[in-house]
Write a protein that binds this DNA or RNA. Structure first.
Length: 876
RNA sequence: GCGGGCGUGGCGAAAUGGUAGACGCAAGGGACUUAAAAUCCCUCGGCGCGUGAGCGCUGUGCCGGUUCGAGUCCGGCCGCCCGCACCA
């Protein structure tokens, strides 16, 4: 029995130094063992790590340490997603250079991560803001350009007025910038694009192969890519009704079956035909102008009422030349999806129904739900978009929707308008190309020089990297690169005349789209990757991060990997074979009487019978305990990892992060439970020391027979070993930890029964074996404590380098088993039988039980169900 | 509106269709102690019966179904959370 408490602060620093000195987590590329690549999403160097990082990196570390023990050559690197806006904001606010701000933050956070005891290979550290990293990104930009995967075009973009930069569609959330929260406006700008839409079909199809991704993420990506099959249909325009040269308009529809229910054709306000007509129609011009004005903010578009303007033009129905439809310009038709024009079938589309109800155009139902009488089926306020049979549709009547679609498609494909087919089948995607231009300084420069004669000329590869200038000013809004004459004004690499550098930098999501590949050979100078090395390590076996990146980062990375493959930098399509999205860390909120939030560290909780109250330590004033929310600076419900590590040690923090909730669910940070974790650390320390004492005089060789106590310990140890091994593989950390606790309870109970003098040789041997297993099992979660215990047990070497214990499966099998006995599904008794008892034998034993006899009341059972090794159910 | 997930004690949770509540937190009781901390032991879903060991009933949001047996599978509701949202 040791009376000494485990001193985490001392032990943790000590073991971290030893791991460092021996470089045990440095991974060698040509190691012959099977590889395992585990990666957590690298952090933005915002200044300090937060509890979300602690949770994320603890999970990854458990996997890394477990796989290492299992004999894999584990790659577990870390780096910094180091470009981005906050560095520039800090530069403006505090007059610090973004570079200095970023590197200082990296130094701080790296020290914090080290204090967590993560088994990271720091020799592979990369920072995306380092020219040695972004040089290769510029190289790949040029490769992609050559491969036709980059495009420069004028485009309507999402403009964030606060950050003064462009956002990709994925970066606009509820009409607001994902970072600033500002209402996003629409602007026209010339932008660089990655042609992610070239891969729409592939990115969608390959989701089916990602069977180790959460369904939720795959569904989100599927919806985002938004594939829809439909028909392009050309409507002839009635010449008499038009004032322009256009003789037709093309629409896209997924519901050609509803063509006989058509009531109008509508054009986007940005449609060329609409603008053409507007030239001679001032009222229409005013309407279009109105649409554009209300339409600058995305939020306004989403909530605007449906409005239209009748152009007076009539479109000829493609299936009936004598039938014409009015052509409207309508505010709800999007220019950048399909053709920017639609036909409206109000009975079966809510938007169209809202529209006709406003303009009194009426509707005709053409799909009748099963069981409805077509004669009485009417649509008033709610469009019907379900299944049914065609009605009011001439040659389509009675067909299913699918058959009707097919009929219309094949008929119109073969009809001609002005010498070309009236219709064409087409697959449309919602996914747009990825606009990567950002009007910022602190990002990867786009390696292009604009020349009046030669156009946009790539910077020659030998001149890379295009390095960011250090001498910049943040005294005015906008991009300082625009104002940096000596950086900006350079000769054209092609003709030598004066040219101008591209001053836009790349979206920082580009930086994070390939860092996982760079980690495989991070010091390579002449290429982004060594193809063979990258192919050997990739894909990442287990990627762990927040679900907030379900679309943005993960979709971009999937595209980028394909683009790298197309340009010869890597040999695979999918970067992440396994993905796990962990839940958030949440915490209670605390408010003063005036409503302002206070930090958990500034209050004290007092238990008051069943209720709890909070008091501000400094003043003693009462504090209201509020709802549980995601930890955030604004709500001041954050807990600083440094404080926790200083108070309890990293192992306690790590254990708590894993123990309290399933890893994919939110975990509530609670001081009481952290103390519970801390108590367990001490408990383990005492237990292992007791076991060391008990095992002191153990025999050198394994005893031939074990007594009851020794056997109990061995069964508990191997049972836990079995369950924890399987649990880590499935990332069921909380359950693993429960099994470790259960085992330690049994172990402590048995050891508590015997006093030192009574330890038999078999028990001594078993106690030592169990202690070794115990320490090995919690080593992935609490590595420092594990090392300390390992040493206390007199084991040689480091437990961080030790092999996972070997399971003895025969210990998991009992000679006799106790089966629950049910009568009519209700548990009445237990029966103990031999492991391999025959059904008949078990039935006899069950029928002999008093409880069963009583329940049967003398009658014979109708049936007895014996589920081997599980349960017996007697049906009366 | 569309899509997805979830609903189990006072709380966090566990449970290949097979003993619901493992493991922990909080709480209550006790031991040790001059005292406290630490530690150890006991109780802990609800209702009822019994002096007691114990026993009975009931219980996984609600209603139904499948099954010898349902927290788990199916159908229909209710509630909460998340994602997408004029994508034709």
């Amino acid at each position: 029995m040791t009376n000494e408490r485990y001193n985490a602060r001392d032990a943790e620093q000590r073991w971290q130094r030893i791991w460092d000195d021996r470089a045990i987590f440095t991974t060698v590329n040509d190691d012959p063992r099977p590889k395992y690549y585990v990666l957590e999403m690298f952090p933005y160097p915002s200044g300090r790590i937060h509890m979300g990082h602690v949770r994320n990196y603890t999970m990854g570390d458990v996997v890394a340490r477990y796989k290492r023990a299992r004999g894999f050559n584990v790659l577990h690197p870390m780096g910094w997603d180091a470009f981005g806006m906050p560095a520039e904001n800090a530069a403006m606010a505090n007059k610090v250079h973004p570079k200095n701000w970023t590197y200082e933050n990296i130094a701080t956070m790296k020290a914090q991560l080290r204090s967590m005891g993560l088994s990271l290979d720091w020799s592979r550290e990369v920072a995306t803001c380092d020219p040695s990293y972004y040089k290769h990104q510029q190289r790949m930009f040029l490769d992609f350009l050559e491969a036709g995967l980059v495009e420069r075009k004028k485009s309507k973009v999402n403009w964030d007025p606060v950050d003064q930069t462009v956002l990709a569609n994925e970066q606009v959330i509820d009409g607001r910038g994902w970072r600033s929260g500002a209402l996003v406006e629409q602007r026209e700008l010339v932008q660089w694009f990655f042609k992610i839409s070239d891969y729409s079909e592939e990115l969608l199809a390959a989701l089916d192969t990602l069977d180790r991704w959460p369904d939720k993420v795959r569904t989100m990506q599927r919806n985002w890519i938004g594939r829809s099959e439909g028909l392009l249909i050309r409507f002839a325009l009635d010449a008499a009704s038009t004032t322009t040269a256009a003789r037709e308009v093309e629409v896209f529809t997924t519901r050609p079956d509803t063509l006989f229910g058509a009531k109008f054709v509508a054009l986007s306000p940005d449609h060329p035909l609409a603008n053409d007509v507007a030239k001679t129609n001032p009222a229409l011009a005013a309407f279009i102008e109105e649409c554009r004005r209300t339409g600058t903010a995305q939020a306004a578009i989403d909530t605007a009422e449906k409005q239209g303007f009748d152009t007076g033009i009539r479109a000829v129905h493609p299936l009936d030349p004598s039938w014409t439809l009015p052509v409207y310009v309508a505010n709800f038709v999007l220019m950048d999806y399909g053709t920017g024009a639609i036909f409206g079938c109000p009975a079966h589309d809510q938007r169209d129904l809202d529209f006709v109800n406003k303009y009194g155009l009426g509707n005709i139902p053409v799909v009748c739900p099963e069981g409805q009488d077509p004669k009485t089926f009417v649509i008033t306020d709610t469009a019907y978009d379900g299944d049914g049979r065609m009605i009011n549709s001439r040659f389509l009547d009675g067909l299913t929707i699918a058959d009707a679609k097919e009929q219309v498609a094949s008929r119109l494909e073969n009809e001609k308008l002005a010498g070309h087919p009236v219709a064409k089948r087409q697959v449309n995607f919602r996914l747009r190309d990825w606009g990567i231009s950002r009007q910022r300084y602190w990002g990867c420069p786009i390696p292009i020089i604009h020349c009046d004669d030669c156009g946009s000329v790539p910077v020659p590869v030998k001149d890379l990297p295009v390095q960011l200038p250090d001498d910049i000013e943040f005294d005015r809004p906008g991009n300082p690169l625009d104002r940096h004459a000596t950086w900006r004004n350079v000769p054209c690499p092609q003709c030598g005349k004066p040219g101008r550098r591209e001053t836009d930098t790349m979206d920082t999501f580009v930086d994070s789209s390939w860092y996982f590949a760079r980690f495989t050979d991070p010091t390579l100078t002449d290429a982004p990757t060594d193809r063979a090395v990258a192919d050997a390590w990739m894909p990442v076996n287990q990627y762990i991060g927040g679900v907030e990146h379900a679309i943005l980062h993960l979709l971009y990375s999937r595209f980028f990997t394909r683009a790298m493959k197309a340009t010869g930098h890597i040999g695979l399509d999918e970067p992440f074979a396994g993905l796990f999205t962990q839940g958030m860390v949440v915490h209670e909120t605390y408010r003063k009487a005036d409503g302002t939030f206070v930090f958990p560290a500034d209050i004290r909780i007092e238990a008051d019978g069943d209720s709890r109250r909070a008091i501000l330590i400094a003043t003693g004033e009462p504090i209201t305990i509020g709802s549980i929310e995601k930890m955030s600076k604004s709500k001041r419900n954050t807990v600083d990892p440094d404080d926790i590590i200083a108070t309890y040690g990293a192992d306690t923090a790590r254990w708590f992060m894993l123990s309290d909730s399933p890893p994919d669910r939110d975990v509530i940070w609670s001081e009481e439970r952290v103390q519970g974790a801390s108590r367990f650390v001490q408990r383990l320390w005492r237990l292992v020391n007791d076991a060391a004492e008990a095992g002191k005089n153990r025999p050198a060789g394994r005893p031939n027979a074990f007594g009851e106590d020794a056997l109990a310990i061995r069964k508990a140890a191997h049972g836990a070993l079995d369950k924890v091994s399987g649990g880590i593989e499935k990332l069921h950390f909380n359950v693993c930890l429960a099994h470790i606790r259960e085992f330690s309870n049994t172990f402590a109970e048995v050891l508590g029964k015997v006093t030192a003098g009574e330890v038999t040789p078999d028990l001594a041997w078993a106690a030592h074996e169990a202690a070794v297993i115990l320490v090995s099992l919690f080593q992935p979660m609490m590595p420092h404590l594990a090392e300390e215990c390992w040493a206390a047990l007199g084991e040689t070497g480091l437990v961080s380098e030790a092999a996972w214990p070997t399971l003895e499966p025969e210990l998991l099998v009992e000679d006799t088993i106790t089966l629950p006995v049910q009568v009519n599904g209700r548990k009445r008794a237990d029966v103990t039988v031999g492991r391999n008892a025959a059904s008949g034998e078990i039935e006899a034993a069950v029928l002999a039980l008093d409880e069963v006899k009583r329940a049967l009341n003398g009658a014979a059972p109708r049936k007895i169900i014996v589920v081997p090794q599980r349960i017996v159910n007697v049906v009366a």
